[in-house]
Simulated scan of single mutants.
Amino acid sequence: MRRRHLVQLAAATIAAPSLSAFAQAFPAKPIRLLVAFPAGGPTDITMRSLADNASKVLGQPVVIENKPGAGGTLPAQQLQTTSADGYTLAQIPLGVFRLPYTTKINWDPVKDIAYVINVTGYAFGIVAPTDGPIKNWNDFVAYAKANPGKLSYGSTGTLTSPHLTTELIAQKLGLVLNHIPYKGSADLNQAILGGQLMAAADSTGFAPLVESGKLRVLNTWGEQRLAKFPDAPTLKELGIDIVQNSPFGIGAPRGTPPDVVKKLHDAFKKAMEEPSYVQSLARYDMLPIYMDSAQYARFAQETFQREKALVEKLGLGKPQ
């Protein structure tokens, strides 16, 4: 018995440095960061800035791969079939926490993701073409009431925050709208400029089109007005008690070693603090929203419960 104990102790002593060495050696190759929206939109542009900064800290490239579609949930789903070694990471938009309530999945968004760090959130609003019939929010509401189901608006996907928040606004005001989903801001902008939509709900990827005079902002969804669009009222100012900024961050597969998660967290936190990243966010009226790994995991749990209530309220849950 004593001899067996000594052999086991010796084996544990040999194994311990190898695990430590793995953590110290990480990363030994490029890291993939899966982004939930298409290239060229505000999410892609800001995440590329963050990835470039993190690459310098980690000493290995952090390579962006765009995985648009499915309401921004494809990267999180891909984590479920990926090695838990820290070399594949994913952007985690809020839509991930709605998945079990809207579709059948065999994994848990809270338990089956290692939450690394929250990095930012969106500034949202509703816009309309400047040459269209809707000149302000009162026009939007009046048209929708007079023409139930005929006011077409686009979003960046079914069950994304722009879609659900707009439907919640409509429910509060007794409106019936015609929702048309797109894969991301770039596609949505093309559709509204092409005359296919009367309005669009999005993060401020619409900013360049507003600044060029092609779109006008009907409202924004933050706690305060956006500095870039000081004339656009918040939902609260319009009597609608909603604030939406949809924080998002970075996750890894469940079971990723804690030392690796910490190394990733520390690198991305440093990357968030670089002026280049802060400037890229400011371009879209976004701000750094930092949560460490423990805070982000708690946020995931709380959001999971809150999103269940929202989906049920809107009657968008999966059939029983």
Results as ranks from 00 to 15, higher is better:
M1A: 10
M1F: 05
H5R: 07
L9A: 12
F22I: 02
A39H: 07
G40N: 09
G41H: 01
G41K: 00
G41R: 01
G41W: 00
M47S: 03
Q60F: 10
Q60E: 15
V63L: 12
V63A: 13
E65M: 02
K67P: 00
G72P: 03
G72H: 00
Q77F: 08
T88C: 13
T88F: 11
T88Y: 14
P93R: 11
L99A: 15
K104P: 04
I105K: 08
I105A: 07
N106R: 07
A114Q: 03
Y115W: 11
A123H: 14
F124E: 15
G125W: 12
V127Q: 04
D131R: 09
G132T: 00
K135W: 09
V141Y: 15
A146Q: 13
L151P: 04
G154Q: 02
G157K: 02
T160N: 08
H163Q: 01
H163G: 08
T166Q: 08
L168T: 13
L173T: 11
G174M: 10
G174K: 07
L177G: 01
A186W: 03
D187M: 14
L188Y: 06
A191D: 06
M198C: 07
S203R: 03
F206V: 15
E211I: 07
N219Q: 13
T220H: 11
G222P: 01
D231C: 06
K236F: 12
G239H: 08
P247I: 09
P253W: 13
G255N: 05
P258N: 09
V261E: 00
K262E: 14
K263A: 09
K269I: 00
F299W: 13
A309G: 11
A309T: 09
L310P: 01
Q320M: 09
